[in-house]
């Protein structure tokens, strides 16, 4: 990794653009998006379907190369690094939970969490203890040796959260983490997630279409047609947004 730049934020993007070529012409999936997230801040990226939030999340996760712009994570520009370095960044600096198929099905809950430490060469006695403690904090003390197929959707999401946090990443990303959960479990998962991000001082970004879940975030970024059109940073305003959605 050779490309470095200075930024006071854990994550900062500058004028990120992502275009695709299709039969009907050029599609601007992400259009000049600049945002900043500080350590210990939990941000929701919301917007209607096709607004570009998932594309933006993929770019932030170093899974997709932007057409132009900068993505600075701990001073490294994700847009400028090689494929091999992007894999390293995903392994060391980023934690990720997905909508579904989150866990490796043949590894137990504990083994799934420990896998991140194993990949980062940090699976020692302390690491193993931390993995157990984190799972216990997430209410999975008696499920550590269960395979994903033996756990509910909510439990699987909590294991995925533990896996996303165990290696102390700078950035934690969640793609629709509550999509397959009932309302009660969805609240529990997001509340736990938010609590850990604040406590461990990570920069957290959650993509969701469910505005009820923004109750636990510090800021809401609204995207539409690939652009970042509105930012809600006032807590009463955010709560109003969540309540409004809940009453609908």
């Amino acid at each position: 990794m050779t490309t470095t730049a200075t930024s006071s934020y854990a994550l900062e993007t500058k004028s990120v653009i992502k275009t695709y070529q299709s039969d009907s012409g050029t599609i601007q999936a992400v259009d000049d998006v600049s945002l900043q997230v500080t350590a210990g801040e939990f941000v929701a990226l919301v917007g209607p379907s096709g607004s570009g939030k998932t594309t933006m999340l993929s770019i932030l996760a170093a899974l997709l190369q932007p057409s132009s712009g900068q993505i600075l994570l701990d001073g490294q520009d994700l847009a400028q690094i090689s494929d091999v370095d992007r894999v390293t960044m995903r392994r060391e600096k980023i934690g990720f939970t997905f909508q579904a198929n989150n866990l490796v099905p043949y590894l137990s809950a504990l083994e799934n969490v420990e896998l991140m430490l194993r990949l980062n060469k940090r699976l020692d006695k302390t690491g193993r203890l931390r993995a157990r403690e984190l799972l216990a904090r997430l209410g999975l003390a008696d499920r550590m040796h269960n395979l994903p197929g033996q756990m509910s959707g909510g439990q699987q999401q909590r294991v995925a959260i533990a896996r996303a946090l165990i290696h102390n990443p700078s950035l934690v990303l969640a793609d629709e983490p509550t999509a397959s959960l009932d309302t009660e479990r969805a609240y529990q998962v997001v509340e736990t997630f938010a609590g850990l991000i604040h406590e461990q001082k990570r920069a957290g970004i959650m993509v969701t279409h469910d505005l009820r879940m923004v109750e636990f975030v510090d800021r809401v970024l609204l995207m539409r047609d690939g652009k970042l059109v509105q930012i809600y940073s006032d807590k009463p305003e955010i709560l109003e947004l969540a309540r409004g959605s809940r009453s609908q």
Partner: peptide, 11 residues
Amino acid sequence: QIGVLKAIGTA
């Protein structure tokens, strides 16, 4: 499953 492994940084 392989997609998840690669996404979390498995080379």
